[in-house]
């Protein structure tokens, strides 16, 4: 299910004194099976952009085409589109509606009037996909969950609709390191094993560097960069100028390079950096 965005513009409160232009002529394409990071400071327009991908917002000008379907077409079946393009919101408190974990995950499938056995089967599968044990958590009260568990429940609730594309909007905000690791592991697994297209929205480069294959940088409603992940980090000054931070591992390499060391490539994860530096030192290639 490819997504094609062409010349998209959007203003909030259009036609009121509070009108605010949030998206300016954005064009982009997302292919099947990709892992795309959409990165930008808060209020840069990335959430507004992503809400066009599953027709929660419709273009005011320009177009969004998902799998050949033009979302602004009045005949388009937006309900089924929204099920195929899942959206996990930043704050799980806004998207957990039921009393227990099981009931909440069943919410999506029940909206589709599926048979009871099918609903149960979807809930079981979704819980397995996010690493929540069915027997332990199915009857658990939503409000007894930790932050990380809440987010996994929210993701499972979307997965139960069997999406082909999953939009994750700043899902690690406010989690402690352990909670964040758990969520990232789940996401990595969904992409690699389930082959779900992932659109990962964040204001931090660290996670995007570890996970994404391609990064789209949004600033003030405009697309600034759209490149494979390693290419993006070749432009540290541009990223810093819009208030984004370079992952620390890349900072180290950059600083070593400034001091005249030759290091063959840019690491994206801690492991890569460790390997890169040890090999370099072992072969003494680092020195000019």
């Amino acid at each position: 299910m490819p997504i094609a965005v062409k010349d998209l513009c959007f203003s909030y409160k259009q036609g009121t004194p509070f009108e605010k232009k949030v998206l300016h002529n954005i064009s982009l394409d997302i292919e099947d099976g990709e892992f795309v990071g959409i990165i930008g400071p808060t209020q840069s327009g990335k959430t507004t952009l992503a809400q066009h991908f599953n027709a929660l917002l419709l273009p005011q000008s320009g177009s969004v085409t998902v799998n050949g379907l033009i979302t602004s077409d009045p005949q388009a079946d937006l309900i089924s589109l929204r099920l195929q393009v899942g959206y996990v919101f930043q704050n799980p408190d806004y998207q957990l509606f039921a009393q227990t974990v099981g009931e909440d995950i069943a919410f999506g499938p029940q909206n589709q009037q599926l048979r009871k056995s099918e609903v149960t089967e979807r809930v079981t599968t979704a819980m397995k996909q996010v690493g929540l044990d069915f027997d332990t958590f199915c009857q658990r009260d939503i409000y007894a969950l930790s932050g990380g568990q809440k987010r996994r429940t929210a993701i499972a609730g979307v997965l139960a609709c069997k999406p082909k594309i999953l939009i994750l909007d700043d899902v690690t905000a406010g989690l402690d390191p352990r909670g964040r690791e758990e969520i990232l592991a789940v996401i990595r697994d969904l992409h690699q094993k389930q082959k779900i297209t992932i659109i990962y929205i964040s204001n931090s480069m660290d996670e995007a560097a570890e996970l994404a294959e391609r990064i789209i940088v949004i600033n003030r409603g405009q697309k600034q960069l759209d490149e494979p992940v390693r290419e993006v980090f070749k432009k540290p000054e541009q990223l810093r100028s819009i208030g984004l931070e370079i992952p620390e591992v890349i900072n180290v390499i950059e600083k070593l390079q400034e001091r005249g060391y030759v290091i063959p490539s840019i690491p994206l994860t801690l492991e890569e950096a460790i390997d890169l530096l040890t090999t370099a030192y072992a072969q003494r290639e680092v020195k000019r």
Partner: peptide, 10 residues
């Protein structure tokens, strides 16, 4: 946000 989260689930 809540309404959108529900629309996103059908």
């Amino acid at each position: 946000k809540i309404v959108k989260a529900q629309m996103a689930r059908g």
